[in-house]
């Protein structure tokens, strides 16, 4: 093609034939799609996970039922009616009644409230105590870190259940005692994880940069380090929640948690277990609800881990 005759020679190709279009900066730099924050990115990945979406729906339904369920029929969870004891599920009592004639539907959702309260509490403690403790321990380092780690070592060395049982014996069994027990034991795991992660992060250059721009410890932790540990925090929180729900139900089941006439899923399952030979429905429905909650939280936690931290995906 080298010797092919050009259509126009140089003289004919004068500059005025051309018009400078130029690079329009605003066009080439234009972002055609809305910006994707880290949160939205994870949300998109989570939405692709069928199991996680279903779990989210199940949990929403359970949450709504826990909020409105106890008001949906005229009964109160402590209201006894001895003439209507051991009614099988039917139009009057949707899930039947227990040995005192209390409406099981109301009691199941009342119990679910307790489980969800425990879930919120566990998440809150993880964030408030666990993250703060871990972050402070890692940032201050040295002697402070050493002392703080000794405390954690002792707490880890004692089985959680032992601490909880001893505490419950000291105080009245009940929701308040379980709350206190969780305040003592519930945040340790989170504190350790956050500390380890921040230890890794605080040597990185963006921290040095922030420091040389004059950020103090507080600003560093809140604005630079915590956002970087956020994924880990959410994931760990999602695994703490089901185990906290389990602990409460477990304690109530062996009679160390909530006491009658209060209803918790553990109490209801224990009642149902005692009468399951003839009244299986008393065991079945609370069991279905707690399994639903536990399975949903666990699948959602798995989904969140994949969504927030694709490296860990398997």
């Amino acid at each position: 093609m080298k010797n092919a005759e050009p259509l126009l020679n140089d003289e004919e190709l004068s500059d005025d034939l051309f018009e400078i279009v130029g690079r329009r900066a605003e066009d080439s730099e234009k972002i055609n799609r809305p910006p994707l924050s880290a949160f939205k990115d994870s949300w998109m990945r989570l939405k692709k996970n069928k199991g996680a979406v279903i779990s989210l729906i199940v949990l929403t339904v359970i949450l709504l039922l826990a909020i409105f369920g106890p008001y949906m029929n005229g009964y109160k969870y402590y209201e006894t009616d001895y003439s209507a004891a051991y009614q099988p599920p039917g139009a009057e009592h949707w899930l039947g009644t227990d040995k005192f004639g209390r409406d099981q539907w109301t009691r199941v959702w009342e119990g679910t409230r307790i489980s969800l309260y425990i879930a919120v509490l566990a998440a809150f403690l993880d964030l408030l105590i666990g993250v703060t403790y871990g972050a402070i321990s890692a940032m201050l380092g040295g002697k402070v870190d050493n002392a703080m780690q000794r405390v954690i070592e002792i707490l880890v060395g004692i089985p959680n259940l032992i601490i909880i049982i001893l505490l419950i014996m000291l105080m009245k069994p009940g929701i308040f005692t379980i709350t206190i027990a969780m305040v003592i034991t519930g945040w340790v795991n989170m504190a350790r994880l956050v500390r380890a992660q921040i230890f890794k992060l605080k040597e990185q250059e963006f921290v040095l940069a922030a420091r040389s721009l004059g950020s103090g410890n507080k600003r560093l932790i809140l604005h630079h380090l915590i956002p970087n540990v956020m994924g880990l925090i959410v994931i760990n929180m999602m695994f703490t929640i089901p185990s906290a729900i389990f602990t409460e139900a477990f304690l109530s089941f062996i009679g160390l948690g909530l006491q009658e006439p209060l209803a918790s899923l553990g109490v209801l399952i224990n009642d149902g277990f005692k009468g399951m030979r003839n009244h299986f429905y008393l065991l079945l429905y609370p069991a279905i609800v707690i399994v639903g909650i536990m399975v949903s939280f666990n699948i959602l936690a798995d989904g969140l881990r994949d969504a927030l931290d694709p490296k860990m995906r398997k």
């Binding site: 089941f253 399951m276 069991a287 399975v295 939280f297």
Partner: peptide, 18 residues
């Protein structure tokens, strides 16, 4: 695996016994 981790042991035990 998911069920085993999620289903509380006392629920499983009670159902097994039933």
């Amino acid at each position: 695996a998911v069920l085993g981790v999620s289903v509380p042991n006392f629920v499983f035990a009670a159902l097994l016994q039933y």
